[in-house]
Amino acid sequence: MDKKKILIIDDEFYFCKLVKLNLELTGEFVVYVANNGKQGISLARKVKPDIILLDIIMPGMTGFEVLEKLKKDKKTMEITVAMLTAKEDEGSKISAARLYSEEYIVKTQEIGTLRAAINDILKRKGII
């Protein structure tokens, strides 16, 4: 089975590193990391990941701005985007849904829960 490609866009360096370490440890995923929005969009166009895990609060471009650009770009508009953020308010959840984000995951989840959420999305999308 091909490894599924995950792109994580988050300015928290260590968070990205540990998501990568944990997910790749399973042997099911290959994880790409971008620590800002611009780099994330560029990597998304280049790598065409199966899922993008996108933070909201980042310096420079916010997660919502990144999401809007991704969903307007023909090369990236089909990619499933799950928000992975520390923000838990209803307003952010609604904004993300309006911009066609497919999932909203609040941070401080164990890797097992995160993996389950990723697999659910992949199944829903018929990728696995």
Binding site: E12, Y14, F15, L18, V19, L21, N22, L25, I57, T85, A86, K87, E88, D89, V106, K107, T108, Q109, E110, I111, G112
Partner: peptide
């Protein structure tokens, strides 16, 4: 609270993922 949540949750998420990694390794 929202600000604190964001600032504190990120390191907490890192700690949790770190533990998850250690548990496996």
């Amino acid at each position: 609270a929202s600000g604190v949540a964001h600032e504190v949750r990120n390191p907490l998420a890192i700690i949790i993922l770190g533990i998850n990694y250690l548990e496996e390794k």
